[in-house]
Design a protein around this nucleic acid. Structure first.
Lengths: 233, 233
DNA sequence: GTAATAAATTGATATATGTCAATTTATTTA
DNA sequence: TAAATAAATTGACATATATCAATTTATTAC
């Protein structure tokens, strides 16, 4: 039972798990967050937030891993990004209609802090550097969506899958060998293609020696070749 | 000569052409904007702002029409939206790296105000409701990109073209008959397909009586059928 | 550990879409 | 107005990609 709560910090002051963003708060503000947040642990596969519902809180991922995705037509989804500790998750709903415009589902057991939206906005109003850092964070998310829109609409399958793998390498795992948390289907949802096509592209990559896949581990063997495939499209 | 400057207001106070956003400024702030803005007229086809360059100003479209687009791989572009009077154009560069992350090109002769970025940010810091309206505006742009990402990656050509036409109808011209400012190539760039495919899809729409195209005018004859095609994908 | 279920893989096939080359139509330039 | 250029259109064809059905492999439940 102790182990269970190990990574679920009970107070914000001195917390090592919170998003960088919150480092810009002073102790008073942090105590206010503390008094208006709840920490929840999710099992892998559970829905952390659901597109379309009312946004009452913003999120901070303390531990674990999750996928953030848009639910589209006919039950299909597009994964926008993988969220990891200690990412902050706000979204365009905060200042538009106060709804969630994407869903987030845990890929691993995860600990997440839910911070009251009104309190968050109140602090934002009172703390300039916090507000600017929030905007910077939001803007970078937008840039990654721009990038995604381009590569998903202008490249063909090998280029899209290469970009997906490079994204995982560069931004999520930051090493060539990573435990394969994502299913083939989820790799397909990151790359805007069918599950079967994802399998076939990966098979090609493996055949050409760019990749090693065993059990639940994937290893990028030839990063430069992947980068070239990404460039060529 | 008088005619030339008709739609290029020289002062911000009392200006009817500026973005809604600026209505939240008081006279003092408006005078500050006034002293730090320049107004420029562009001919159709001219580049108003270029992706990759430094962002020194934010924009407000006084008159005319323009396309806002991402420059992608191999010279290809994806049009994100059409901008019309009196749209504000900021973008994710303001609070990230102060660069332009999309290009804007005039479709019609246009009058545009360039407002100094540092002054804009300064006013933003001092005026809460202005800041929140800016965030709302930005957030709605982000939502439209989410929407675009979904429809461009999950629908096939007829659905994508239908969405493009419905977008023009609902949000830009707001009437079934509109002068066709966009070339077939630009309709293709809005719908993530080749020029030839755009032509073929439009031909089908015309053959089925959904559309009338003559000279430089396009008329949507069957809005409901287009909406159905949009839904079916 | 076995059965049941879910995920991954495969090849065959159908379909969507892009590319190419030729032609027509529209627009600009001289 | 004619010539030159650009844009739109077309059909034939190649290619990319999805879908389907069958099979294998992995995972979960009992």
């Amino acid at each position: 039972m102790t182990e269970y709560f190990d990574k679920s910090p009970k107070q914000c002051v001195g917390c090592q798990c919170m998003s960088q963003l919150f480092c810009l708060l002073n102790e008073e503000e942090l105590l206010l967050v503390d008094a208006n947040k709840i920490n929840v642990r999710f099992n892998a596969g559970e829905t952390i937030k659901k597109q379309g519902t009312f946004m009452t809180h913003v999120l901070s991922i303390n531990s674990g891993l999750a996928k953030l995705y848009l639910e589209g037509v006919e039950g299909r989804s597009a994964i926008l990004r993988i969220v990891k500790p200690t990412n902050f998750i706000g979204g365009p709903g905060i200042y538009s209609d106060q709804r969630h415009h994407f869903s987030v589902t845990a890929l691993l057991d995860s600990s997440v802090c839910f911070i009251d939206l009104q309190i968050f906005k109140k602090i934002l109003r009172g703390n300039q550097s916090f507000a600017e850092e929030f905007l910077k964070d939001f803007s970078e998310d937008v840039l990654s969506v721009y990038n995604r829109l381009i590569y998903l609409t202008q490249k063909q399958m090998p280029g899209r899958m290469a970009d997906t793998l490079l994204y995982l390498h560069d931004e999520i795992f930051q090493q060539p060998k990573f435990s394969m948390i994502l299913s083939r289907f989820e790799l397909a949802e990151l790359s805007a293609m069918s599950r079967e096509s994802a399998v076939k592209v990966l098979r090609e990559f493996r055949k050409e020696g760019l990749l090693r896949i065993s059990d639940h581990e994937m290893e990028i063997l030839d990063l430069e070749a992947l980068q070239k495939i990404s460039r060529v499209g």
